[in-house]
Amino acid sequence: MKLSLEQITHHYAGMPVLQDISLSIPAGEILCIIGPSGCGKSTLLRLIGGLERPDSGEVLQVGEPPEGCLNPLTYVFQDFALLPWRSVGGNISLVLEDHGIRGREADEIIEDVLARTKLSDFRKALPRQLSGGMKQRVAIARALAVKPAVMLLDEPLSALDAQTRELLMDDLLALWTRQPFSGVYVTHNLAEAVRLGHRIAVLSRRPGKVREIIEIDLPLEERHHGHARLDEVQAHLWSLMKQEAMAADQELLDV
């Protein structure tokens, strides 16, 4: 299944936040969206997953989601969004229950996704007992449990400290290499974008428009820290973003 955005324009209280965005997300590829703060990247992600309705333009699913997919468009949120009153296992079973998956079948799925995110020993723990990195791994496990066609990741590492971020980035890469998934990854961190993105869409400051789409023709498994090609792309991204970021920083909020 492929996603295609057609000329999306969106306003908040009369202020244009997104203008004429057209993008496509082919199966098995990760598209990173970067831009200065307030450029509407998170709004764009909410539009893609149907949590908000665009003022004009549309988001199209092209083709059928793969078989066994319970929730084609699945989010991983910046603040994890785990139910604090449910254990790790309970948080995952939450998204299965509504599809009528209970008992042994649910157990198997939960075991499997917990193993893939290295959380098998924490099935009974409550969210408050977990560190930030672990919480986000639970959220990723929950997303994997519904076998999404496209993962929508909204700054998933931004609430974590630098070391944890690095570890989780490796985990995400490993997950993708084991079983490629399509994804839209919104971030303001250029290093994350060049590590994980097959393509990187750079948005301008408000109203967000696509300034440039950069393709990185290096397989994900060959990308590591300090790779010359990645540094080059990152430097280029920064040169694109710097002016925008500076201008965005000077803007008043809510004018």
Partner: peptide
């Protein structure tokens, strides 16, 4: 509200 958005994003029914 983010928890409610989460529920909606996973396609949970209103009653759930």
């Amino acid at each position: 509200r983010t928890l409610i958005r989460m529920g909606q994003s996973f396609g949970l029914s209103w009653w759930s």
